[in-house]
Amino acid sequence: MENQIKIKAFGMVAEKLGSQELTLSNPGNSESLTKQILEEFPGLRSVKFSLAVNKKLCSERAEIPVGAEVAILPPFSGG
């Protein structure tokens, strides 16, 4: 059970996953995690989403430390 990460999903991403929380093995970085999520949940391929690691948005490949809090965020609509 070590090296597992909890992932919280929001909005339409959570709807596509059918859950607001997932536990997956930690692939080590945000790029690999995105690939892993898309392989396990092909329905997300049609949704543009962002990853946040420890409340920081990942704009490029970011390391995911052990015990990190990861969020999958739907597209934001500006006001």
Rank of each mutant, 00 (worst) to 15 (best):
M1S: 00
E2T: 11
E2V: 07
E2R: 04
N3D: 09
Q4F: 01
I5V: 03
I5C: 05
I5M: 00
I7L: 01
I7N: 00
K8D: 01
F10A: 02
G11E: 05
G11V: 01
M12L: 11
A14N: 09
E15F: 09
E15I: 03
E15N: 13
K16T: 07
K16A: 13
L17A: 05
L17M: 13
G18S: 06
G18L: 10
G18Y: 13
G18T: 02
S19W: 15
S19I: 07
S19L: 07
S19C: 09
S19P: 08
E21D: 05
L22V: 06
L22R: 11
T23A: 13
L24E: 13
L24H: 06
S25A: 15
S25W: 04
S25R: 12
N26D: 08
P27N: 07
P27Q: 05
N29S: 04
N29E: 05
N29F: 07
E31M: 06
L33P: 01
L33M: 11
T34R: 15
T34M: 06
K35F: 00
K35R: 15
Q36N: 06
I37Y: 10
I37R: 07
I37C: 08
L38E: 03
L38Q: 06
L38H: 04
L38W: 09
L38Y: 10
E39W: 08
E39C: 00
E40N: 14
F41P: 02
G43Q: 12
G43K: 15
L44M: 13
L44G: 03
R45C: 11
R45W: 12
R45F: 12
R45Y: 14
S46C: 02
S46E: 15
V47W: 07
V47A: 09
K48A: 07
K48Y: 01
K48G: 01
K48R: 10
K48E: 07
F49M: 12
F49Y: 15
S50D: 03
L51W: 04
A52D: 02
A52T: 03
A52H: 13
V53K: 09
V53M: 02
V53T: 03
N54R: 11
K55V: 04
K55D: 09
K55E: 08
K56V: 06
L57C: 04
C58E: 01
C58P: 02
C58W: 15
S59P: 00
E60L: 08
E60M: 04
R61Y: 00
R61Q: 06
R61I: 09
R61L: 05
E63N: 12
E63W: 00
I64H: 11
I64E: 12
I64K: 14
P65T: 14
V66F: 03
V66L: 15
V66D: 12
G67P: 09
A68Q: 09
A68D: 05
E69C: 12
E69T: 13
E69V: 11
V70Y: 11
V70F: 13
V70G: 06
A71Y: 13
A71F: 15
I72L: 14
L73T: 03
L73F: 13
L73V: 06
P74H: 15
P75T: 09
F76T: 08
F76D: 00
S77K: 12
S77R: 11
S77N: 10
G78W: 09
G79T: 12
G79N: 03
G79M: 06
